[in-house]
Design a protein around this nucleic acid. Sequence first.
DNA 1: ATTTGTGCAAACAGTTTGCACCAAG
DNA 2: CTTGGTGCAAACTGTTTGCACAAAT
Lengths: 190, 190
Amino acid sequence: MTSGRRSPSQKTISTKNGKRETPSLKRPGPSARERKEDSPSGTTQRLTEDLRSSGIHPTQQRLRVFQTLTESKGHLSAEEIHGLIRSQTPRIGLATIYRTLHALKEKGLVEEHRFNDEFSRYEAKPAKHHDHLICIECGKVVEFDQPVIEQLQVAAARENHFTIVSHRLEIYGICESCQRLRKEHDALLL
Amino acid sequence: MTSGRRSPSQKTISTKNGKRETPSLKRPGPSARERKEDSPSGTTQRLTEDLRSSGIHPTQQRLRVFQTLTESKGHLSAEEIHGLIRSQTPRIGLATIYRTLHALKEKGLVEEHRFNDEFSRYEAKPAKHHDHLICIECGKVVEFDQPVIEQLQVAAARENHFTIVSHRLEIYGICESCQRLRKEHDALLL
DNA sequence: ATTTGTGCAAACAGTTTGCACCAAG
DNA sequence: CTTGGTGCAAACTGTTTGCACAAAT
């Protein structure tokens, strides 16, 4: 009971509505390739180049996904990314988001996280590795890094004859504002 | 394409077979409460007590789940637990496994893990916290503990004004035998 | 008789896939 | 024309839930 599965979408969209009625209104603009949209000028170019040099053909959609991840510095779910992009470019499929994320992840351009036991969240891979502090009340995620951890893991791995590929340290706790909320709440009960 | 989703069950059992045909063969034995089965003598008693003192009414099924987790020291998925129990006690539902795991987790008797990005795996909560070393080739999990990590996380949390509740450190790498396999494989290519 | 737990099947939610169509070389 | 990418809907998979029945008090 009270199984709190915070879901990004409230309900499954009843898949019974538009059954390929008008496959026409696909491309409103012109060639649709040189459009820079309304993003900060040079940024798009750089991202495009990043994709290309990673062997990912930079289509509009892929660029949008990558861009969304780099701009909003948070840890977004696939559906959140979908929603954000959709608000500007209506016709993009969730499947494309997933396919793109898969490719980006494979090429090392994004990282996938599964905090607590929720669905996957993605972030553009940062220059230097960092770990996460997650609030179990509100879900807030704070990044931090502790270079010493790197050495510790080497020791642990060596003892067990493992070759390290990566690591993941997540600290679960209660953030400052939630602590405050708790205190207020407790005060009311006394 | 090569989307490696290692699944504990190959296929969904086509839910079209037994539609409540014979709700009879439920309880083969006698009162079915005092049965110790074939487990090491005193063990069952202790586990029963553990459950009871945690406020979980110790039914046959719950006991079985808990017992399976404590005996097989590994990190089992719900379906694996189901399979193991089923081989001795045919009629137990997967839903019961999940409900029990949920209860056990809530009471702090088991821990849930989601290594890599697979399904959940469970382990009986050990006396002292430990972390995991996971082989990305074969999925083997080795436990280790690094008491120093405890201090580091305290520091990281304090800086960010978090109250620590728990942490999770997973190191992904390649285990000894898989390293050997790789070398052999590489040798063949030269 | 009341309460609690269970098995089963159906529902869910996140993710993946099959396919017809679109877009670029 | 060929190749690869996309949108859509359907399939899949791990997990949860509704419900009728069973077990224990």
